[in-house]
Simulated scan of single mutants.
Amino acid sequence: MTQDSTVQGTVAEGYEAVREEFAAFVAGEQPDYEGQLCAYVDGRRVVDLWAGEGVDAGSLYGVFSCTKGAAHLVTALLVQDGTLELDRKVTYYWPEFGVEGKSTLTLRDLLAHRAGLVGTDTGFSPAELADDRALAERLADQRPFWRPGTAFGYHALTMGALTGEVIRRATGHTVQELYEERVRAPYGLDFHLGLPASREPRFRPTQPMLPTPAQLAEAELRRTGPHTLPSIARNQHASTPTDLESLPNDRLVRANGPASVGGVASARGLAGMYAAMISEVDEKAPLLKSDTLAEFGQPHSAGHDLVCRSHAVFGLGFECTAETWHPFLGAGTLGHCGAAGAQAFADPRGRLAYGYTRRRFAYPGGAAPENDRLAAAVHEAALKG
């Protein structure tokens, strides 16, 4: 293993170029940059790096929608077990859901962001956003914003609550409880859906975005009114509009771990979860079988996203990372980015799992631009290995 004096941590033999790429990126960032990078190949940790004052491998960050990856790993396990059936109607598990034109929606279409339930007419309170059951109760009564199953749009703040309520009805347990029991605790992962008070000292509060004047001008051109689908999906029409940048800095959000955006993790935790999904780790068999991985990573919704107003590709609960972010990755790569810049994924064909965190919210939101060069460096090293 080798080590760098600026970028801390280690890389396995053959991955020195990854350390060099991370160091080059960090050198060009502001002095207050904090971030972590971790990767596994064949279940073995090959990259474990971090940078920033006061940061170490155990520092924890709000990872926003990377949380959806954990929630939908649980969903995939329940489908694999036969507890959930993708082509059953949601009302089979959740009868109250079948009002306002939602009675025919299947679980498969729900997971593919095709439900049209990106928010509610009046928005959510801060307390509701921290409570998946409260969100689910509101969403059950909501008329969809498009005819379910006919189009798709990113359910940024609601997907975890919708999936979680199906899981709770089917099993009697929350997605957070099942994730803790079946995934986090057995592998000792620093990826929490509900951060214990004892681990609070390791949490690094999210810092706000610092856009350049040119970026501010660009963002102003994309600004939408409060009653558009993008604004409704971000809860900007609520009486207390959501400040997304500060969401994980609310202790209630961290404690409850809402399954859309409330996860707290290190890069080790992100990459470790995806490694356990596809590889033998700690002498444990992969969590998901090949056919389950193929089902959940297969594109189900591809084309114009009504919320993001751009091209997007989703599998079942996961982003199709190769089609959406990094075209050099293998077909069937599945993962999720987070609003502040984090990203995590598994490439089953490349036998690669990747996790990246950062503290300051990156422009323009979603997977931070540096993931392009960092993921490419990891992938290239893995191919050579």
Rank of each mutant, 00 (worst) to 15 (best):
G28A: 07
D32K: 11
Y33I: 05
E34Y: 01
Q36M: 14
Q36H: 05
L37Q: 10
C38P: 00
C38E: 12
C38V: 15
Y40H: 15
Y40P: 00
Y40A: 01
D42A: 08
G43C: 09
G43H: 08
R45V: 03
V46H: 02
V46C: 01
V47R: 02
V47T: 08
V47G: 02
L49S: 10
W50E: 04
W50H: 15
W50S: 05
G52C: 07
G52A: 08
G54Y: 10
D56F: 11
A57W: 01
A57H: 10
G58N: 15
G58Q: 14
S59M: 11
S59L: 08
L60M: 07
L60G: 02
Y61R: 05
Y61M: 04
S65V: 09
C66R: 07
T67N: 04
T67I: 07
G69Y: 13
A70R: 03
A70S: 12
A71W: 10
H72C: 07
H72G: 02
H72N: 14
H72F: 06
L73D: 03
L73E: 07
V74P: 01
T75P: 00
T75V: 15
L77R: 13
Q80M: 05
Q80C: 04
L84M: 13
L84V: 14
L86Y: 14
D87W: 06
R88T: 09
Y92I: 02
Y92R: 13
Y93I: 11
Y93V: 12
Y93T: 12
E96I: 04
F97A: 09
F97N: 08
F97I: 09
G98R: 05
V99E: 13
G101L: 08
G101T: 10
K102G: 02
T104V: 04
T104C: 03
T104L: 08
L105W: 00
L105R: 10
L107E: 04
R108H: 15
L110T: 11
L111C: 11
L111F: 12
H113N: 13
A115I: 07
G116P: 06
G116H: 13
L117V: 10
L117I: 11
T120S: 08
D121F: 00
T122L: 06
G123P: 00
G123F: 01
S125F: 00
L129P: 00
L129G: 02
L129M: 14
A130F: 01
D132C: 05
R133H: 09
R133V: 13
A134H: 02
A136F: 00
A136K: 09
E137N: 10
E137K: 13
L139P: 13
Q142P: 07
Q142D: 07
Q142W: 14
P144M: 02
P144C: 03
P144W: 12
F145C: 02
F145G: 01
W146N: 07
R147C: 02
R147A: 13
R147Y: 00
G149H: 03
T150G: 04
T150M: 07
A151Y: 06
A151M: 08
A151F: 06
G153R: 04
